[in-house]
Write a protein that binds this DNA or RNA. Structure first.
Lengths: 167, 167
DNA sequence: TTAAACTTTCAAAAATATTTGAAACATATT
DNA sequence: AATATGTTTCAAATATTTTTGAAAGTTTAA
C-alpha cells in the first residue's frame, strides 16, 4: 500500500467509525484528515481532498472547533484560514470527555433525578421503577465522576489507569 | 409528576440519548422500557407502549438480544414470548464494552495497523502520517485493553476504579 | 395434517440527517 | 468607496436510516 491509498483508507474508516458513534461522517473525516496532516490545511484543500461542498466543510469545521479539537491558524502573508487538529491523543480524549459530559451526561442525570423523584404508592411496578432509575442515576454519576477525574489529572492517565487496574 | 408521565419521560430520553450515541432510537426505547419493568414484557405490550409496528419491534428486540442485553423468557402456560433486560448495570456495562470492542475497536485496530505499516520515503508528510497512526494504534489498543480488564474483573469495577483513581 | 397463534423478513414508504450551492456577510486591498 | 478574497448561513435537494405492514415462516396443539 502506498501513502495516498493509506491516507484515504484511514480517512474513510475514521468517518465510518464516527457514524457508528453518532458523529457526522464528514466531521469525522475532516478530523482524520487534519490529524494526519503535518501542517495546517485550508478549507479549499479539505473540500478538494474529501470532495465536499464549501458549506459542508464550513459547518463541520465549525462543529469541530466548538468541540475544541480543531483550531484555526493564520499563516503569515496568507489571507485565508488554515486549520489544525489537536494531535495529542490524551488531550483529545480529555476534550471529548468534557464535551460529551456537558452535552449528554449532565442532561441525562437531570432527567434521571427527576423521574426517580416521583412519589410512589405501594405498587411493586412503581417501586421497581424508582429503584432502577435511582441505580441508573448513581451509575451514570459514577461514570461521569470518573471522566472528571481523568480530565483533572491528565498526564498519560490512560497508561496509569491500566497499570492500576492490573495490580 | 406521576408514574406514567415519569416512565414515558425516561423512555423518551433514553431513546434520544441512544440516537446521540449511534443507537437506533427504538432500540434504546425498548431497552429503557424493559429495564424499568419489574416483569417480562410481551412484544404486544412493547408495540402498544411505544406505538410501533410489529416488524420494528421484532427487529430491534432481536438486535438487543444480539447485544446480549435483553433475554427471551417463557411464561408458564403462555404461548407467546416475553422479554426482560439485563438490569444489573455493571453487567450491562460489561456486555456493551465487549460488544463495542468486537464490532468497532478490533476492526479499527486492524486498519490502523495496516495504514501505519506503509513504507515511507523521507517526506516529512509521510513520516508524520505513520507516526500519528502508530500513536493512534497504541492509544486505541490501550483503551481496548482497559475495557478487557474491566470485563475480566467485574465486581463493581467502576466503584473500585474511581477509588483507585482518587488515590 | 391442519389450523391457530405467534414471529420474522424485507421491499416499499416515511422520517431523519446530511449536503449542496448560491446569496449574504466579512474583511482586506487598491 | 469600490473591488477582491474569503467565510458563513440556510432553504432546498439528496442521501441515509428507520419504520411499516403484509407475506412467509415457525411452532404448538388438536
Amino acid at each position: 500500500m502506498e501513502f495516498k491509498e493509506a491516507k484515504n483508507k484511514f480517512v474513510q474508516s475514521w468517518g465510518a467509525l464516527g457514524s457508528q458513534w453518532g458523529i457526522n461522517k464528514t466531521m469525522a473525516q475532516i478530523h482524520a484528515l487534519l490529524m494526519v496532516s503535518n501542517e495546517p490545511v485550508s478549507m479549499e484543500d479539505i473540500m478538494e481532498e474529501l470532495q465536499i461542498s464549501r458549506g459542508n466543510a464550513s459547518m463541520n469545521i465549525r462543529a469541530l472547533m466548538d468541540w475544541g479539537i480543531v483550531y484555526k491558524e493564520f499563516k503569515a502573508g496568507e489571507r485565508k484560514e488554515f486549520f489544525t487538529a489537536e494531535k495529542d491523543l490524551d488531550e483529545l480524549a480529555v476534550k471529548i470527555s468534557r464535551e460529551r459530559s456537558k452535552r449528554e451526561i449532565k442532561p441525562t442525570l437531570k432527567i434521571l433525578k427527576e423521574v426517580s423523584s416521583i412519589d410512589v404508592k405501594d405498587s411493586a411496578e412503581e417501586k421497581h421503577f424508582v429503584d432502577q432509575t435511582e441505580k441508573l442515576y448513581d451509575f451514570v454519576l459514577k461514570v461521569d465522576n470518573m471522566l472528571d477525574k481523568i480530565t483533572e489529572m491528565n498526564e498519560n492517565w490512560l497508561g496509569r489507569m491500566v497499570i492500576k487496574l492490573l495490580k
